[in-house]
Design a protein around this nucleic acid. Sequence first.
DNA 1: ATGAAAGCGCTAACAG
DNA 2: CTGTTAGCGCTTTCAT
Lengths: 346, 346
Amino acid sequence: MNIKDIAVLAETSTATVSRVINGDAHVSADMRKKVLEVIELTGYKPNLVGKALRSQRSNKLLVLLPTIVNPYYSRVLQGVEQCASIHDYDTVIAITHRDPETERRYLSLASTKQVDGVVTFTSSLSDEDIYAYSKEFPIVQCGASSGLISCSCIDNVKASYDATEFLIRLGNRRIGLLNGPYRRTYEVDRENGYRYALIDYGIPVIPEYIASCDYTFTDGIDCCAELMQLPEPPTAIFTSYDISAAGAIKQLLKLGLTPGRDVDVIGFDGTYISAMYSPEITTVEQPGYELGKAAFDLLLEKIEKPDAMVKKIIMPHKLIIRESTRSMPAEDVPPIESSRVTESAG
Amino acid sequence: MNIKDIAVLAETSTATVSRVINGDAHVSADMRKKVLEVIELTGYKPNLVGKALRSQRSNKLLVLLPTIVNPYYSRVLQGVEQCASIHDYDTVIAITHRDPETERRYLSLASTKQVDGVVTFTSSLSDEDIYAYSKEFPIVQCGASSGLISCSCIDNVKASYDATEFLIRLGNRRIGLLNGPYRRTYEVDRENGYRYALIDYGIPVIPEYIASCDYTFTDGIDCCAELMQLPEPPTAIFTSYDISAAGAIKQLLKLGLTPGRDVDVIGFDGTYISAMYSPEITTVEQPGYELGKAAFDLLLEKIEKPDAMVKKIIMPHKLIIRESTRSMPAEDVPPIESSRVTESAG
DNA sequence: ATGAAAGCGCTAACAG
DNA sequence: CTGTTAGCGCTTTCAT
């Protein structure tokens, strides 16, 4: 069943059928009615591969996720999807499992014109590789920033600084950091924010307190266990993922310590895990939905104007204080506002 | 840059270039070398839309997920993906958010030949609708079973029976059930398993103990709160998702009750959430990876032999006993084995 | 307002 | 072993 069959049944040409399908105004009401009847009757569905081949666009977007285990991605995804569907784009997702080869395979969906654009998160490819792809097709980053292509993200340095500063104001001087092991920009930023805060408060940065910790629960446990075995174990731990924070807390509980009293713990992302856990986890919330929405806007601009400027949209983060950190007099709570900024670079 | 350009540069025909690209043996070594050089030199990537249009297949699979919030899907997905990639299929994912219209939109990717087949989980469409789609293109279910199309799943009746029986043997007579609100087959099955176990042990089924509970953490809290407000609150709660179990436990803790002592709680799926939570959650584990793998096998069979029989592959589940249920003498642990069976129906 | 016809990039007979 | 050619299903000038 193809457009020609419909044309024959409706006693007209394929051109007219095509016009009806695509809402072209230059069709008489009678003709339109007749064609629509035939379509209805036959249950005809246009072959979108043919359409894509001819029109050189697919109206599909690809979102590349390193994993779906972190529920943080769920919210961002919704931001992308909802905006995309308003603009008549379907969103399909592919998981890279942080494997460069897999990532390249899925990126070839764009190279080969099967999708019109790509939103990527933390990539397993180098910034340069991603930049090279950006010459081939529209691609933007979300939640991570190389500076080479457009992206929406929070200010990770500041977010990490805020969390660390909060721990310091709580009275901690020995603060551990469980940071991701991939050395992506956002991980480096978070480590820097942590370092800057310590330095600003005259606290020495001790390398042993900085652990390379994968984004899994068990890694959170293991890294926390290591830190707590140190001769002078930290009195607070800041982690790069809520899941790692849960792991750290689990380990503290195993050691008979009480999170939020003996040791303060802060997570990252503000996923439901942080609200769900017992004790509830203090966390740096990222505005997931908004980041996704902004990423889509950036991508759409790139699709429509391929030589649009590279833009970086920075959204505000928020420190959500819960049970895994001890309480502090309200008037001493550090400032955590962060303003929305749009920077541009040629 | 298309196949014709390459043909011109390599001083040959498009047919030969196509042969080289597709690994056809009927090409001389010299010619192959020359073509490959040109491809390398130009960075040419075949347009897969053209290929798909011509060959009437895309080598892509679509996995339809209701949500990615439940980490259970992550493991199943890996099963599908890994098998798919071995057979040279790419796997793309779409989220329905349990919206029928969205689901239909993504299913049209298959109707319109953009993907070769679909793996769906719990669907927001009726079993009959899905069955109708199965006439149009290859589609299989995973983790849910309508009986109308091929699927891989566990025996939900038995799984639920096992969990309920375990709670009964622990000494509980008032057992609450937090079950999903969508009345899908697997939900009905789980309620039935719960009922059968109670009946077998001569325990009355009390409607007030059966709550309709969405798969979110907050719904778990709310439903548990309701049950515990009953004049005779349950002493055990069986839930359909690990996340609901976490919610239930959170609520019990709020009420000053100790899970695994005052009230037993069992979750479902065996996701990392159950292992992560404090206390750790007793759960019915589904063999996610294997379910995904089986679903792919079923789908592949359907793609290759469109009129293959409808099959149902039932995989073993496993009750994993952790801290959220009280301990019991080892010799009294109920049998929980469940064998792998393949049923067939015309 | 409608139709004829060209062609998007590719593959697969078929011929040589 | 290699080239010619006819479409896959659709859209879009260009006529009429």
